[in-house]
């Protein structure tokens, strides 16, 4: 829900010396995204997509760094970032399983997917497995209703899910620590 204020204490993380906005990210934004818009602020969403892709979540320090980079105040950046559901402020497991819960998926049995996930991995929506491998989330319509029930695993859409098959697919994914990009899933 876009307007729920995140608990700032929970979001607290110690600062680190190494910047989140690496030279690579800054370079990509300056080269690719700044020329597209009349001002720097408009590059905020592309910038945070890059950060999400790199780290899998958004650290408070990244917000401060982005503010300096985009010539905005930290509160302006915070205001925008906390609005969007895809920009997560907390760390997740390596694979984020976004199960769609909207009407077509509920009609076609998204509950059975969640039940199977609970049975196999012992997690409810919002929780992460103990080995930090899988985070389960329920999301609103993924725009793939003809493939209901469907889920987005990191950046890949899985449609016409058969719960048991889907869970065994997830089990077979490599469990190396850290955040993954879509390249590992394929």
């Amino acid at each position: 829900m876009a307007w729920i204020v995140e608990d700032r204490l929970k979001a607290y993380q110690p600062a680190r010396n190494e910047p989140y906005l690496t030279a690579k990210i800054k370079d990509e934004v300056s080269r690719k995204y700044f020329p597209r818009y009349p001002n720097k602020r408009a590059a905020l969403l592309p910038l945070f997509h890059l950060i999400m892709h790199e780290y899998g979540y958004i650290a408070p320090q990244a917000i401060d760094e982005a503010a300096t980079f985009l010539e905005l105040t930290p509160s302006q950046v915070q205001d925008a970032v906390t609005f969007y559901e895809e920009f997560r402020l907390e760390k997740t497991g390596r694979y984020v399983v976004n199960v769609c819960r909207s009407i077509s998926c509920e009609l076609c049995g998204h509950q059975r997917v969640l039940e199977k996930m609970r049975e196999i991995f012992g997690i409810e929506p919002g929780e992460t497995t103990a080995d930090d491998k899988i985070t389960l989330l329920e999301v609103e319509c993924l725009g793939a209703c003809e493939q209901a029930p469907c889920a987005l695993v990191n950046e890949d859409l899985h449609g016409r899910i058969k719960p048991a098959e889907f869970c065994s697919q997830l089990q077979q994914l490599p469990a190396a620590p850290g955040h993954s990009t879509t390249d590992d899933v394929r």
């Binding site: 876009a2 590059a43 905020l44 925008a80 559901e85």
Partner: peptide, 21 residues
Amino acid sequence: AGAYICGEETGLLESLEGKRG
């Protein structure tokens, strides 16, 4: 980045400008 309201035309424009939608 995952907000239904950004499909509303002026919400979309705000989001395009890098603000909340």
